[in-house]
Design a protein around this nucleic acid. Structure first.
Length: 291
DNA sequence: ACCGCACCCTGAGCGC
DNA sequence: TGCGCTCAGGGTGCGG
């Protein structure tokens, strides 16, 4: 699941392939809700234009084009943005992988899930956007065009302050985890890092936000930023589909303390990690360390 | 205003 | 062997 660290890692590594390049050709799969901008319009808008910047806004990647227009990319759940030279078993389904000889598994060929292909000038590798479940998004914004999705986003999770989180928690009955997942409060947090941050902070995910103290908000923000920064350092978490643009796995999945570790002993106290549904999401925590 | 929930999608894993 | 079911979840939108 690409969250802030995975999107930031992607930005840093795909940036050099995109920024300063002219898009020579755009190829896509058929129109679908994946393309908020229909493929034909996307081609018209992008072909021949130079990419001048690549920024991250929450979990969105925003490419700035020379004419002032912008290309929005969201990786959703299973989105993969990578170089055509990348190799990874994560780019192949298990059944496809099983049908291929080992030497054939080393080169990726665009498949039916490779929804966007950008050929750039300079003869370097192409850039592919693959997304099995199509929860990702591609949208082109005309120069100066505003976008509700971006406008809705709150403070970037790396810039959030304890006081701000505390203010957002006032009089809220929803679980603190639900607030952390709310992109209008802290942009960039998803299920993995919400669980990890709450573990570090020693706070139960199901606690009503309105009952979280100011001190605890400080601890949550501190814990959140610690896990996010550490994950960026290690190249993000490769838990199901995420690969970095060169096809390599991230390293943070090996540093997780609770996410996906149901039943395993807590690294701090040895109590088995519990799992329950909070905010309609699978939630992992230590009942002894988190109050 | 707030909150829970259905929905979009496909592949993996499991029971029979 | 294979079918059918459940689960995974980011973000949107709707109903209470």
């Amino acid at each position: 699941m690409p969250e802030l660290p995975e999107v930031e890692t992607t930005r840093r590594r795909i940036g050099p392939l995109l920024v300063g390049r002219r898009i020579e050709r755009v190829e896509t799969t058929a129109a679908s809700y994946f393309f908020l901008t229909p493929p034909a319009e996307l081609k018209r808008a992008l072909e021949g234009r130079r990419i001048e910047s690549l920024d991250r806004v929450g979990k969105y990647l925003v490419a700035g084009l020379e004419d002032g227009s912008r290309l929005l990319l969201h990786l959703g759940m299973t989105g993969q943005l990578f170089s055509s030279a990348a190799t990874s078993v994560r780019l192949l389904s298990a059944t496809v992988r099983a049908s291929l000889a080992p030497e054939e598994q080393r080169r990726f060929e665009p498949d039916l899930h490779t929804h966007l292909r950008l050929r750039l000038d300079g003869g370097g590798p192409q850039v592919y956007f693959r997304d099995v479940r199509k929860f990702g998004k591609v949208q082109w914004l005309a120069p100066g065009e505003r976008n509700a999705r971006l406008d809705r986003l709150g403070t970037d999770a790396l810039a959030l302050g304890g006081a701000e989180l505390f203010a957002a928690c006032r009089k809220r009955k929803a679980a603190i985890k639900a607030l952390l997942l709310d992109q209008s409060i802290a942009a960039g947090v998803g299920n993995i890092y919400a669980d990890e941050a709450l573990f570090v902070a020693g706070v139960r995910p199901a606690r009503a936000a309105g009952r979280i103290t100011r001190r605890e908000c400080d601890a949550i923000v501190l814990g959140l930023q610690r896990v996010l920064l550490r994950s960026i350092e290690t190249g993000g978490s490769s838990i199901s589909d995420y690969v970095s643009p060169d096809g390599s796995d991230g390293g943070y999945q090996d540093e997780r303390k609770v996410y996906g570790l149901t039943g395993e002993p807590c690294r701090v106290c040895g109590e088995p990690i519990k799992r329950r549904i909070v905010a309609q999401r699978s939630t992992h925590y230590c009942a002894r360390c988190q109050r």
